[in-house]
Each structure stands twice: as C-alpha cells, then as structure tokens.
Nucleic acid binder design. Structure first.
Length: 376
DNA sequence: TAACCGTGGTG
DNA sequence: TCACCAAGGTT
C-alpha cells in the first residue's frame, strides 16, 4: 500500500523539479510523529506554529502538550485570563507570542463565533500572525495552495539553487519564493511546506548538512558545486551580547514577598518580578538595590542582606542580578503604574515568572544556610 | 531595514 | 566560556 501511494504521489508531480519530486517522495517515510501532527485541527496547527517560532521542536513539544491539556480549544483559551496563559507559557520565552495568541482567540470568539479563518489573508490580520504562520495554518490545516517558507525552507532552497544573496535581505526571500512557486505543483504546496521544513531540520541543517543521506543531493547545486554546502546561506556573525548589571531586592514581611507586575508591552511583558533595576555608573549593587526599591515602591531600607548573584541571558543582552533581601522596610508602600502583590512562596509559584526570577527563588527559602552566596 | 523579543541545546 | 541559532512577528 505504502509503495503504491508513494509512486502515485510521485507520478502526479512528474512535471516538478527533480529535487521537489525527491523531497515529496522522501517525506512520507521520514515524517516524525510530532504531537501537532496527530489530529490536525486548525487550532492545534496554529498553537504549534506559534510555539515553534524561534524555538526548537524538542523544546516546544512539552509546552504544546501542556498548553493543549490546559486550553484544549479556542474557546477555552479565550475564556482564560492572560495571567493563566502566561503561566502555562512560563519558561518558553518570547511572551508576546502568548499574549498575542490569547488576544487573537478572544477576538475570534467575540467577532467570528470562535471560528478560525480559513484563508491566509484573513489569518494574517490576527495579532501575532505574520506571513509565515498565516500561510502555514492555511496550507496545513485547510489545504490552501500557498507557500509557507520559514528559515529552514529558505536555507534548503538557497542550497538547492545556490542563492548567494544576503539572507537578511528581502531579495533573498523573494527569489526563493519565486523559485518554489514556479517549481512546485500548487496542489502539492501543503506537503512541500512541511517536507521542506522536515528536511531542513533533520538533514539540511545550518552546519554539517547530511548530504550523504539527502534525497535531493544529486540535484542540489550547493552539494554539487561547493566544497562545503553548509556555507550557504552565509551566516552573519553577531557581536557579543552586552552585560547589564542590576540589583534586585526581595522584601519579606510576615512570610510574604513583594512582587511587581511588568508592563504588558516589551521585555517579559505581564510577568511578575521582585523590585529592582540597573546599576547607575559608579553605583554599588547595594545602593542600586536601595534606590530602585525606593523609586519603585516608596519603601526605604537600611543595610541590605546580599543573597546571591543570578546570571541570565536574554535575546540580545546578558544580566548579572545582585539579589538582596530585607525584612525591615520603612515607609508607606506606593507603587505607581504597575500592579503589586504580597505573596507567600506557594502563591508566588502560581504567578507567571521570568526565568531569572525562578532562579532566585531557591535562595529565598527559609534560611538553613544563612549568608550563603552563589558563586560568581 | 534593523532592532527588539527568551530560552535552551550545542560544538 | 562563547557564539550560534531554532517552524518569526512587531515596531
């Protein structure tokens, strides 16, 4: 049965490019059983595409399972609070993805009776849905004959066609899109989209492509004409990430800790954290901890107890956060422009927290080992 | 166009 | 330790 369906598929695309034909023939036997490929509903495809944005499959899988258990449908998602959604997203990063997905769900329930649009042009209007995700959902979930080209796909096509233009330029994407649309039969575009990604992730990787087992190797220009096919597309090197030094103060009062909610937009939007901020030039961490606390909460403290230094890396900078603790703040609490709460440890763990804050929590447990400070 | 937006795996 | 980078979107 399998051989017959494979040859039928291959026969139908006889007019296509040899690499396209080889890819489409290879895919059915090399298609990994990923969770979003079971029961392929538009909602599941959409959630998976959002999660997979800039994220490896292995990292996305557990989040996808957890998210679908907690929010099995668009309506359940729309009925949840943003905080609940962010909590499930906690640790996955790029939190705007979760906020946008939630906003879009609410918008669809409010305006479209909870139905996910079938056409990519309509999907494209939803928050957090750009050209790629719109095309991917429309083609994978609804069979719209539209090309969905991600960075995996662009890398593969650039190697096939020896496309040497700057990968960050519009020209690069435009030329590859044109090539694909010319060489893939429209009715095969959905399969092609997925097959190309699969090839890009499993064999035609950024470095060290596995040409020996690649179904398209014999017609791949990079393979045939370059000493290292992995040299295409060219990779631009980024400079080192700048280091930001900050101070964070955990205020404890009767077993409860003061936390602030970050503004909805921007870095870690909507997540909760302890008061703190960047050191000013020449300022000591402790002085910064006192100053930030005063500015953000109106509270003043005397000597701060150093607890740990937590290091963390974001998309475009690194931080070293000096964590302090105080049990004796003075003054009247006055937080402007953001929500604040006093929470016990159990309640704290129920809030959506940034990774860096999660790293701090073990240091704040009841002191078995007073004065303990982390390395670094 | 380019900066911004997290996190974890990898060599 | 370090730089790369992974099913992109927004501003």
């Amino acid at each position: 049965m399998r051989r017959r369906s494979r040859s039928l598929r291959a026969a139908r695309s006889l007019g296509a490019d040899a690499r396209v034909r080889a890819l489409l023939d290879w895919f059915p036997d090399h298609r990994r059983p990923l969770p979003w490929r079971r029961r392929r509903t538009p909602y599941r495809v959409w959630v998976s595409e959002v999660m997979l944005q800039q994220t490896r499959v292995a990292q996305a899988v557990p989040y996808f399972e957890r998210f679908l258990r907690r929010f099995p449908s668009l309506r359940v998602l729309a009925a949840a609070s943003e905080e609940q959604v962010l909590k499930v997203w906690e640790g996955a990063g790029y939190y705007a993805r979760a906020r946008n997905l939630h906003r879009a769900a609410r918008q669809l329930v409010r305006e479209q009776g909870g139905r996910i649009p079938r056409r990519s042009a309509e999907l494209r209007k939803l928050p957090g849905v750009g050209p790629y995700i719109a095309a991917a959902v429309a083609s994978l979930a609804y069979g719209e004959p539209i090309l969905a080209l991600d960075s995996n796909g662009r890398r593969v096509l650039a190697r096939w066609t020896l496309e040497r233009s700057d990968p960050s330029s519009a020209r690069f994407s435009r030329r590859l899109e044109r090539w694909a649309v010319r060489h893939v039969p429209p009715e095969r575009l959905g399969e092609f989209n997925e097959a190309l990604m699969e090839l890009g992730e499993t064999l035609c990787r950024p470095t060290g492509p596995q040409c020996a087992v690649c179904p398209a190797a014999s017609a791949c220009r990079a393979r045939q004409e370059l000493p290292d096919p992995g040299a295409i597309p060219s990779r631009r090197r980024r400079g080192p990430k700048p280091l930001v030094v900050g101070a964070v103060t955990a205020i404890e009062r009767r077993g409860r800790w003061l936390v602030l909610r970050r503004p909805s937009a921007g870095l870690l939007g909507g997540l909760w954290e302890f008061p703190g901020g960047k050191l000013e030039p020449g300022e000591s961490p402790e002085a910064a901890g006192r100053r930030e606390l005063r500015e953000e909460t109106g509270l003043t403290v005397g000597v701060l107890e150093p607890v740990a230094t937590v290091r963390h890396e974001y998309s475009h900078f690194r931080v070293a956060l000096h964590l302090f603790r105080s049990r004796s703040p003075r003054g009247r609490l006055r937080v402007r422009g953001r929500r604040h709460r006093w929470v016990g440890m159990r309640e704290l763990r129920r809030l959506p927290l940034p990774r860096a804050t999660l790293k701090m929590i073990p240091f704040l447990r009841p002191a078995r080992d007073p004065g303990r400070v982390s390395r670094g």
